[in-house]
């Protein structure tokens, strides 16, 4: 899965940039907002057929988010000391990491 062979030095963990933590953070924020909206806001039962959809979706998202964050804690990704850094793709006009030399 995601485990990497650890080097002798203190392992350097991916932490906040682990994609599982990012997914967990986004879904968790959404979950809390939707659950609060479900508890405090209007129900609009005429749309959903009587179900408090915001509340239930919110709770489900919080559970999924905790699952992702828990997974990342349980099996952290260790960043090796050396790896291929991604190149700037010159065909993509996004800001470049290194400024191209000016003439």
């Amino acid at each position: 899965m995601t485990e990497k062979s650890e080097t002798a030095a203190a392992p350097h963990k991916a932490g906040a940039f682990d994609i599982r933590n990012i997914i967990g953070a986004l879904l968790g924020i959404y979950g809390v907002i939707l659950a609060l909206a479900g508890l405090l806001g209007e129900h609009e039962p005429e749309k959903t057929g009587g179900v408090n959809a915001n509340l239930w979706t919110g709770l489900a998202l919080v559970v999924v988010a905790l699952g992702f964050i828990g997974w990342a804690r349980w099996r952290p990704v260790v960043v090796p000391d050396d790896f291929d850094r991604p190149d700037d793709d010159p065909t993509r006009p996004a800001p470049q990491r290194k400024r191209p030399p000016s003439h």
């Binding site: 350097h12 963990k13 960043v79 991604p86 996004a94 470049q96």
Partner: peptide, 28 residues
């Protein structure tokens, strides 16, 4: 919130604030 996340990650990726994000973006 969604666009904040997406653009935030894009900016961090470009500034290369952490080895970890480089590691993930390198794909390997």
């Amino acid at each position: 919130i969604y666009f904040g996340f997406v653009l935030g990650i894009g900016v961090m990726a470009r500034r290369s604030v952490s080895d970890s994000i480089d590691f993930f973006l390198s794909g390997r």
